[in-house]
């Protein structure tokens, strides 16, 4: 964790308001400066597999947690999930789906693809902040991540 380039959390979110609210909530966890934000599925995949604009990135530099929205431009969240769980280099990274969708088929499909947690974003900001706080607390601070 001494490396400044190390990314604790990959946040994949296209909605700027949700992005800002999420980041706002994460600031309380002192995790906001170790977050990489991808604005669509394609960028998330490039970042994860160090391809395209991120071809120079060392894949060993995180992330330790992926917060993934499902409804994304270009490549949607379920496909991102499927791709990274199918690859031995990334399949160990915990993935938390953070989405507005309560759709049963999304929940079922996510778990089938191996998601570690599925959180429906509460509309109420208080509840939303609390949810983010708990996610950060559990997955980044409490949870023992797989060795890199």
């Amino acid at each position: 964790m001494t490396n400044n380039d190390f990314v604790e959390i990959l946040l994949v979110e296209d909605n700027p308001s949700d992005l800002e609210l999420t980041l706002h909530a994460l600031q309380h966890q002192k995790l906001a400066n170790r977050i990489f934000v991808a604005r669509d599925g394609a960028e998330a995949l490039d970042f994860l597999f160090a391809t395209g604009p991120h071809s120079g990135r060392n894949m060993r530099e995180g992330p330790r947690l992926i917060l993934l929205d499902l409804k994304l431009p270009k490549v949607d969240g379920l496909e991102v999930l499927q791709r990274l769980k199918a690859d031995t280099r990334t399949q160990a990274i915990p993935v938390v789906v953070l989405t507005s969708s309560r759709q049963e088929r999304d929940v079922i499909e996510s778990y089938r693809l191996g998601v570690n947690s599925y959180i429906v974003k509460p509309v109420d900001f208080g509840q939303f902040t609390e949810a983010i706080r708990q996610i950060g607390m559990y997955w980044v601070l409490l949870n023992q991540p797989p060795p890199l």
Binding site: S17, D18, S100, S101, V123, D124, F125
Partner: peptide
């Protein structure tokens, strides 16, 4: 309804969230 579920909530969250902030 999928779209309602997903897309209508986000602006609400923004309204609720930012006004609260």
């Amino acid at each position: 309804s999928y779209s309602v579920s997903h897309d209508l909530r986000a602006p609400l969250r923004a309204m609720s969230g930012f006004s609260r902030i």
